[in-house]
Amino acid sequence: MRRDIPLLITGIAGVVFIVQYFIPHFPFNRFSNWFSDWFSIVAACAIWLGALNLFKLSLEKIHARREGWGYAVITIVCFLLMTVVGFSEGRDYSKVGTGFDWLYNYVYSPLSSTMFAILAFFVASASYRAFRARNFEATLLLIAAFLVMLGRVPIGDLLSGFMPPGMRLSQLATWIMQFPNTAGQRAILIGISLGIVSSSLRLILGIERSYLGGD
């Protein structure tokens, strides 16, 4: 029950999606439609599970008065505020002018973009440590990063203004992104994809079982 049925479900779901790709006709196209609908519903429930688990853990933290319980109160209040406003707006919850849209624009959006923006400072400090031309490979990394960064801002073309139009930093940055970068990305992408294919096969055949956890 605890191990065999999940393995069977994994195998059936995987095989149906593979067969449907090669035989997109009845009954496999219908199975695939069913599974896609179920996937959407279960994915939504998985997000709900995560949010409800956060709610539960925050409540436990407050109940036990653990360190930082005050922040858990703020988390719960904000979670409830967003959900109450979102559900009260109905199906058009995200339309311009709704309360949900207001919270998104003036709370969620500034917080998320600033969270990612401060990474610029950490990236700068990390690059200071990493960007030392210790060997040829590190020098290549340094030069590529430098050219791409400089080529993406107006000062790049200003500095290389004396060069012929096709040789300026912006064009050089574009060439690096278009060719050597593509070559490396492609090698990585093909490697990752082959890894995903073999991992998927292991999951479908029941060889890989770690996702089922213990006992």
Partner: peptide, 17 residues
């Protein structure tokens, strides 16, 4: 804490609708 709560609420509502 506000970000965590608002994000969880956002996805909770978005995935529902």
């Amino acid at each position: 804490a506000i970000f965590v709560g608002i994000s969880a609420g956002y996805w909770f509502v978005a995935y529902f609708w």
